[in-house]
Amino acid sequence: MLVASDLDRTLIYSAAALGLTMPDRDAPRLLCVETYEHRPLSYMTETAAGLLAELAARAVFVPATTRTREQYQRVRLPGPPAAYAVCANGGHLLVDGESDPVWQAHVRRELTDCAPLDEMRAHLRHTADPGWLLKERVAEELFAYLVVDRDRLPDTYVKELGDWAGPRGWTVSLQGRKIYAVPRPLTKSAAVAEIARRTGAPVTYAAGDSLLDSDLLLAADHGWRPGHGELADSGWDAAHITALEERGVAAGERILREALRRAR
Results as ranks from 00 to 15, higher is better:
residue 2 L to K: 11
residue 3 V to M: 02
residue 4 A to Y: 11
residue 4 A to Q: 10
residue 6 D to R: 02
residue 11 L to R: 01
residue 17 A to N: 12
residue 24 D to Q: 15
residue 24 D to W: 13
residue 25 R to Q: 09
residue 27 A to W: 14
residue 28 P to L: 14
residue 30 L to E: 04
residue 32 C to E: 14
residue 33 V to L: 05
residue 34 E to K: 00
residue 35 T to I: 11
residue 35 T to R: 10
residue 36 Y to N: 01
residue 43 Y to H: 13
residue 44 M to I: 12
residue 46 E to S: 00
residue 47 T to Q: 10
residue 53 A to H: 00
residue 53 A to F: 12
residue 54 E to V: 05
residue 56 A to M: 13
residue 56 A to K: 15
residue 58 R to S: 13
residue 64 A to Y: 05
residue 65 T to C: 00
residue 67 R to A: 02
residue 68 T to Y: 01
residue 71 Q to H: 06
residue 72 Y to E: 09
residue 72 Y to D: 01
residue 74 R to L: 14
residue 74 R to N: 06
residue 74 R to V: 02
residue 77 L to W: 02
residue 78 P to D: 01
residue 78 P to S: 13
residue 79 G to D: 06
residue 81 P to V: 11
residue 82 A to M: 04
residue 83 A to Q: 14
residue 86 V to L: 10
residue 87 C to F: 05
residue 88 A to T: 07
residue 89 N to I: 02
residue 89 N to D: 15
residue 90 G to H: 08
residue 91 G to D: 00
residue 93 L to D: 09
residue 95 V to S: 05
residue 100 D to A: 04
residue 101 P to C: 08
residue 103 W to M: 07
residue 109 R to W: 03
residue 109 R to T: 09
residue 111 L to M: 09
residue 120 M to K: 05
residue 120 M to I: 12
residue 121 R to N: 02
residue 124 L to Q: 08
residue 127 T to Q: 14
residue 128 A to N: 08
residue 128 A to V: 13
residue 130 P to A: 09
residue 131 G to Y: 10
residue 131 G to K: 10
residue 135 K to H: 14
residue 136 E to D: 15
residue 139 A to N: 05
residue 141 E to M: 00
residue 142 L to R: 03
residue 142 L to F: 00
residue 143 F to T: 05
residue 146 L to V: 14
residue 147 V to M: 10
residue 151 D to K: 13
residue 158 V to R: 09
residue 162 G to C: 14
residue 164 W to D: 00
residue 165 A to R: 09
residue 166 G to E: 11
residue 166 G to Y: 10
residue 167 P to F: 06
residue 173 S to A: 15
residue 173 S to Q: 07
residue 180 Y to A: 06
residue 181 A to H: 04
residue 181 A to E: 04
residue 184 R to L: 01
residue 185 P to Y: 08
residue 185 P to E: 10
residue 186 L to Q: 01
residue 188 K to R: 13
residue 189 S to K: 09
residue 189 S to V: 01
residue 190 A to Q: 07
residue 192 V to I: 07
residue 196 A to I: 07
residue 196 A to W: 02
residue 198 R to G: 12
residue 201 A to I: 12
residue 201 A to N: 08
residue 204 T to N: 03
residue 210 S to D: 15
residue 213 D to V: 13
residue 213 D to T: 12
residue 218 L to E: 04
residue 219 A to H: 03
residue 219 A to K: 04
residue 219 A to Q: 06
residue 220 A to R: 04
residue 224 W to E: 01
residue 225 R to G: 07
residue 226 P to D: 11
residue 228 H to L: 11
residue 228 H to C: 12
residue 235 G to I: 09
residue 236 W to D: 12
residue 237 D to M: 10
residue 237 D to H: 15
residue 238 A to M: 02
residue 246 E to D: 14
residue 250 A to Q: 05
residue 251 A to D: 02
residue 251 A to F: 04
residue 251 A to H: 11
residue 251 A to I: 07
residue 252 G to V: 03
residue 254 R to L: 14
residue 259 A to S: 14
residue 259 A to F: 12
residue 260 L to N: 08
residue 260 L to M: 09
residue 261 R to A: 15
residue 261 R to S: 10
residue 262 R to S: 06
